[in-house]
Design a protein around this nucleic acid. Sequence first.
DNA 1: CAGACATTTTAGTTTATTCTAAATTATCAA
DNA 2: TTGATAATTTAGAATAAACTAAAATGTCTG
Lengths: 120, 120
Amino acid sequence: MTATTLDVFAATASPRRREILRLVWSEERTAGEIHRQMPDVTFGAVSLQLKALQKAGLVEARTEKRFHYYRARREALGPIAEMLESMWSDALWRLKLEAELEESRRGPRPKAPRARADQI
Amino acid sequence: MTATTLDVFAATASPRRREILRLVWSEERTAGEIHRQMPDVTFGAVSLQLKALQKAGLVEARTEKRFHYYRARREALGPIAEMLESMWSDALWRLKLEAELEESRRGPRPKAPRARADQI
DNA sequence: CAGACATTTTAGTTTATTCTAAATTATCAA
DNA sequence: TTGATAATTTAGAATAAACTAAAATGTCTG
């Protein structure tokens, strides 16, 4: 049996579920429409992932006639944003980042892509 | 056997790994120090999770004498931030959010916590 | 009502995850 | 070298995840 709840981190860890989430992000879609975008899996599999996303609070559904319309609950991504914020706003890190920026101001240093200063 | 790579979404889906990541976020720590913060699992389990984080690029290690010092590769959280950005910056959503804000300006409507407008 | 349609649910399989206990590697100190 | 310390690796168990195929549910149309 599948767990009765699912946190947002686990829910977004699955590429399939992220794909579905994107499909219902800005407009609602029926389960069938969603399935048509991913012909490599069965309808049943899509339905199960929709249920999983629902458990995680990432989508909600509305039933009209024979159709079930799904849409994203966009604010449900909040906990992930909070994690990024709480980590990237870390005081010690800020100090280090400033030091690194300072350093790179002195001598240019071609290396791995810079940390995302715009996100701090 | 455990997979040979691990993406950042899967890596951060585990509460245990998020806990470890926080511990090494702003200062490096040895595997033993990390284990001391989580006495409910064996040292071996911590070591395995450190390896998993390393595969995902979220931590890196430096060896000095008997000690292995781990520290976060903070920029490795980038793909997660990109997901949030790409979704929250979605044009259609912006329109909808504006409409919702407009609506809530008219009549106050006590409901679920507002979407994180500050993140858009 | 019968049949078609849209979707969900169940049962079962395969594969991955997370852990433990024990064995292993490596370094240090006397 | 011996014994202690620090960490990794391996083998195996328990649990969870992601599917499929088929059965079940609910709704509409003629």
